[in-house]
Design a protein around this nucleic acid. Structure first.
Length: 251
DNA sequence: TAGGCCATCTGGTCCT
DNA sequence: AGGACCAGATGGCCTA
């Protein structure tokens, strides 16, 4: 079907405006291997960073290059009944560019967040939802560590007895280290020791908003997509009642 | 092959 | 009017 948008294909990343059928682009190579930034966009905020230049010259390219262009084409739904006025069409194209950049900015922020989270040894890239949940649990664990350290410091100042095990080194800020739990394949990440026992994320079932100290859905994860992994931290032992060891868990 | 994840398009709504 | 934000729809890629 002809599209009224087809005349501006070359000015936008909106590949769906062409009349290309799905069959024409089948057999394309991995899109995932191509990062979004190198695929169609450049830095956020520059819509023109799409593969505009090459698309502009689509008509005069060889078969090989045309094939490459086809590979890059067409993500997302394509629709248009061919009745959209040019003015509206141009507005839509600009809106698409903005939306694309907006999502790229969002993804950049997620990448930045991944960068500050404890790394996983196998370099498995966390999905978006996993990143958010893991960050939530991570923040909770750090907060717990600080809270417990403060508690012990105040106890010490008040002349109260030290922690049961008396290991003040546990008062240090989280000492992150990456481990691999051989007993539990798939559960590998970072852990740290903290002092004092407290409610762990793994034992919490309250909502995020309902508790100020414990991450909410990190345990049961009713909101988790079926099969999705949720990375968090679990209090694995409390031998002396004061020594909690947070280990990463996958829910 | 089904399901998960993702990028993109699209139209609606709200705000400036 | 135009931009930001959002959610639904669509289709590609990857993995179990």
């Amino acid at each position: 079907m002809d599209s009224v948008y087809s005349d501006i294909d070359s000015n936008s990343c909106d590949f769906s405006y062409g009349a290309q059928s799905d069959d024409e682009i089948s057999g394309s190579s991995s899109m995932r291997s191509e990062s979004p930034a190198s695929d169609c966009t450049g830095k956020p905020g520059s819509p023109s960073d799409c593969d505009v230049g090459s698309l502009l010259h689509l008509g005069g390219q060889g078969d090989a290059e045309q094939q490459q262009q086809k590979k890059k084409r067409r993500r997302g739904r394509a629709r248009n009944d061919g009745t959209v006025p040019v003015v509206k069409k141009n507005r839509r194209v600009k809106a698409n560019d903005r939306e694309r950049n907006r999502m790229h900015n969002l993804n950049d922020a997620l990448d930045t967040l991944r960068g500050v989270l404890p790394a996983f040894p196998d370099e498995t890239k966390l999905t978006k939802i996993e990143t958010l949940r893991f960050a939530h649990n991570y923040i909770w664990a750090l907060s717990e560590t600080i809270r417990i350290a403060d508690l012990q410091a105040s106890n010490k100042a008040a002349g109260k007895a030290p922690p049961v095990n008396g290991d003040m080194s546990l008062l240090m800020l989280p000492n992150l280290s990456c481990i691999t739990d051989e007993k539990t394949p798939g559960i590998e990440a970072c852990s740290w020791s903290s002092a004092a026992s407290s409610s762990s994320p793994a034992s919490s079932s309250s909502s995020p908003a309902s508790s100020s100290s414990s991450p909410a859905y990190c345990t049961s994860n009713p909101s988790s997509p079926v099969g999705a992994q949720d990375y968090g931290f679990m209090q694995s032992d409390s031998i002396y009642g004061y020594h909690s060891h947070f280990v990463p868990v996958v829910y």
